[in-house]
């Protein structure tokens, strides 16, 4: 425990230094997030870094809800021009921000963040399903099955506002893949 705390206390300034140097570097945003990711991979199991990771996962989950809500509205209105603009934005958001955020294996099994991690993955899959990217939805389903194998009874929030077991949520997601 003491070791974890020491690690955490040490991690925060290091992360900050990495983040700030990323902001000031000429490598662009992609480089910054990669640097953050590397730091988190090394030090993320406690303290400030873990707290920050929780915040990031939660924020990304809420952001996906808002993106999904907007995308549904645009689709309902058959506003294809706006759909294309937002679709591009979401694709870039996923590639540059969400995928790195979801990449680490540890957070899918860390007791303090694994539920957030699972919720975010389901939300991502839901958004992709609503955007009719069935292949990507299947990839997400495969990834969820693999990551959470043997933990199908774990509670997740899917759809938003409803709690159910991960196994049941996966079944619903499979249906959603074709029914959206």
């Amino acid at each position: 425990m003491r070791r974890t705390m020491k690690l955490a206390l040490g991690a925060a300034p290091m992360l900050l230094a990495l983040q700030l140097s990323g902001c000031a570097s000429d490598e662009g945003p992609g480089g910054t997030e990669a640097a953050q990711q590397a730091a988190i991979e090394e030090t993320a199991l406690g303290g400030e870094a873990l707290s920050q990771r929780r915040t990031d996962l939660m924020r990304a989950w809420r952001d996906l809800i808002h993106l999904d809500e907007t995308m549904q509205g645009l689709s309902d209105r058959n506003d294809s021009r706006s759909v294309v603009l937002l679709d591009n934005f979401i694709a870039e958001y996923m590639a540059r921000h969400l995928e790195p955020l979801l990449a680490p294996d540890w957070q899918s099994s860390h007791p303090e963040v694994m539920a957030l991690d699972a919720n975010l993955r389901f939300m991502k899959a839901q958004l992709l399903a609503n955007m009719r990217y069935t292949r990507k939805v299947q990839e997400s389903i495969d990834d969820l099955e693999k990551r959470f194998e043997g933990r199908e009874n774990m509670l997740v929030e899917y759809p938003v506002g409803e709690q159910r077991s991960l196994g049941e949520a996966l079944e619903m997601l499979r249906d959603q893949k074709w029914n959206s």
Partner: peptide, 19 residues
């Protein structure tokens, strides 16, 4: 602007705030 500026700044800003 959101993608290039806001998204990469949010996590560092949280860290600064925490400290």
């Amino acid at each position: 602007l959101w993608m290039d500026v806001v998204v990469p700044l949010e996590s560092p800003f949280d860290t600064l705030q925490a400290l």
